[in-house]
Amino acid sequence: MTTLVDTKKLTMVQAVTDGMRVMMKEHENVIVLGEDVGQNGGVFRATDGLVAEFGDQRVIDTPLAESGIIGTSIGLAMNGFKPIAEMQFLGFIYPGFNQIMTHASRIRARTLGSFTVPMVIRAPFGAGVRAPEIHSDSVESLFTGMPGMKVVVPSNPYDAKGMLISAIEDPDPVLFLEPMRCYRSTKMDVPDGKYNVPLGKAARLQEGEDVSIFAYGAMIDVVTKAAKTAEEKGIKCDVIDLRTLYPLDKDMIAESVQKTGRAVIVHEAPGTGGLGETILSLINDTSFLHMRAPVERVTGFDTPVPMFALEDHYLPSAERVVQAIEKVTQF
């Protein structure tokens, strides 16, 4: 039996808009707040058309103050609303860090569940689009290391919509990171209406027995290219899109490395303190005796993201990933 579902070809940024639209239609209490999200439709057009459809009481142009946006969203969330707060760029979230760290992430714990903060913070992030300074930061680890927050990163339009809907339905605060490089890089069939891509579940993009590759967001494109090159050299990669960075999909990571005995972890965030370290310890905890080679990491460097003339040097490339794949297979 086949079910016919109407689909549309959408870019990731259009899929994000569609996810918000679907949930705003369904739930009166879902509102969008942020800088330029109203008439302008957001600097990336992620909220394009929403103010016309839902009005300025639900799609709210706020003053230019990230702590203010997140702090008032916390109050709105505690009192019956489901705010989707847009940060213009993840690199601009720092003034709101205190609100997330000391309140959003721990109000449930502090009050033993009396108050909760069901909100979503959306933020475009990552380098590779020739953006000005500070616009390209990849600081997801600040939040994966923050008890009480879920952190998710889609890498394609289908996941973006389905994961955003799941994030909006989640009873706890979710940081929803949108890789800028993926915003318009590809179009995909995206179902109309509501569907869920569950949080906490990774996706296997390619099946292989030789090396596990773990990546997320904009790095998926890079590792897919690398896996193709590796395949031409006879190395079959198990490519995993992590999708949710907290909590990680432990089972899929363990299952994959227990099959391959080799792993390459790729992210554009700095190596030290990056998610790669967490994945490494997870492999250690679950699969140490299955490993046939030390795990390789291909990451951004322990430097500030450089201005864009140097960003291609900073970002992990398919070539570096291929070298890492060869290193673990030749160990």
Binding site: I31, Q57, S67, G68, I70, G71, T72, S73, I74, G75, L76, A77, M78, N79, G80, F81, N98, Q99, T102, H103
Partner: peptide, 18 residues
Amino acid sequence: PIASQLLHATGTAWAEKL
């Protein structure tokens, strides 16, 4: 943390208004 709660009060009151 000092003053962070002013925003929560504003947010909850805003919710009542909405």
